[in-house]
Write a protein that binds this DNA or RNA. Sequence first.
DNA 1: GCCGCCATTGGCCGGGTGGACAGGTTGCGA
DNA 2: TCGCAACCTGTCCACCCGGCCAATGGCGGC
Lengths: 203, 203
Amino acid sequence: MGAHLFLTPDARILDGWCRAFGDLARAGSPAALPDAAAGGLLWVDVAHADWEGLVRAASARGGRVVVLSAMPGGEQALRALELGARGYCHAFATPELLREVALVVRHGGLWVGPELLARMIRATVPAVAAAAEASAPLPGLDTLSAREREVAEAVAEGLTNKQVAGRLGITERTVKAHLATVFEKTGVRDRLQLALRLSRRQP
Amino acid sequence: MGAHLFLTPDARILDGWCRAFGDLARAGSPAALPDAAAGGLLWVDVAHADWEGLVRAASARGGRVVVLSAMPGGEQALRALELGARGYCHAFATPELLREVALVVRHGGLWVGPELLARMIRATVPAVAAAAEASAPLPGLDTLSAREREVAEAVAEGLTNKQVAGRLGITERTVKAHLATVFEKTGVRDRLQLALRLSRRQP
DNA sequence: GCCGCCATTGGCCGGGTGGACAGGTTGCGA
DNA sequence: TCGCAACCTGTCCACCCGGCCAATGGCGGC
């Protein structure tokens, strides 16, 4: 245990990494992936053509993965975390920082840089609150029939009655009938209120 | 450096922590807070009456804080992270796990348990995407005049033209005029579309 | 078989909505 | 001073929307 497997096409970056970890560092090929799962740490440079696939594969095997980028960005970091990475930092980070990241990730932690970490926390707080409130967004929403729900969701997308009728292959009159029962069951007045209430849901 | 300062009213929990960290562990009083900022780690039990204040104060001073709970929960964890804590785990966790958490947090990482970590990532991905899209939610939204924006936001709340007129102290006709220019500037057809587009923004 | 729920459709009507004419004032920069 | 944009208001009209009356057919339960 304790081995570091590095995947990057850039020789200079690899050199920096090796200075940080000494003889524990090994430049690896994708074929050596299973090694990373055995208690070691896999470092993947986004410059690698298939970095996303590598991260996903290694994470699925239970390996700890750190993604490095010469041009770090929020979307890329989130993409990495989504794929299972537990660390994300600058590819040219100092050896000290790299060792910090290694320590954190290998012990089950997350390392992403202060600003992104703050952003994640800020994003999660309202999301959890929204999930709690989404448990009862509309009182009688579960009492809706399948057809009524279809109409309600189409309306919530902003379609007119005529458009909904066309999508469902029924008359506009029928749409209005379904919509009337939806309003009655959920206690909503407008289609606008319905759209606003339905649009606050878990994506 | 390396000292652990524990704040809990429960003697059994304190005993468990001391077993985990040996003579590095010290039961502390809130008055000893500044110590935690000096390279050490502050552990706060949510059983403490003012745990939120303690976490906030210590974090503001730059200290690394771990929050422990005998009954861990998502909302509580998020609350702790929001206040500046960088670790959250069960108060009766094994000494091994506590040492892992200590290692991670002290080296700048985040430790929150796998399920919450996954939830945070899932919550952040759409939030970041929404933020990116919110940069241009409506093409000409910045070209709206102050009055037009007022009308647009009132409409986005679900008010009718008459209600908007009452709120702004103008005629319903004027509301329709402003709304017409809002539609024209933003390229939106309906008030419903406007409400849906405007409701997708940072809360 | 009757009852209730659902899906479907019809007509009618009052009110909301959006567009197309039309004006007016105020303030600000060219 | 002129032009222009923002703000405000008016009338007319076609259309949409939601609520009211009604009807038909299917399907499952008592």
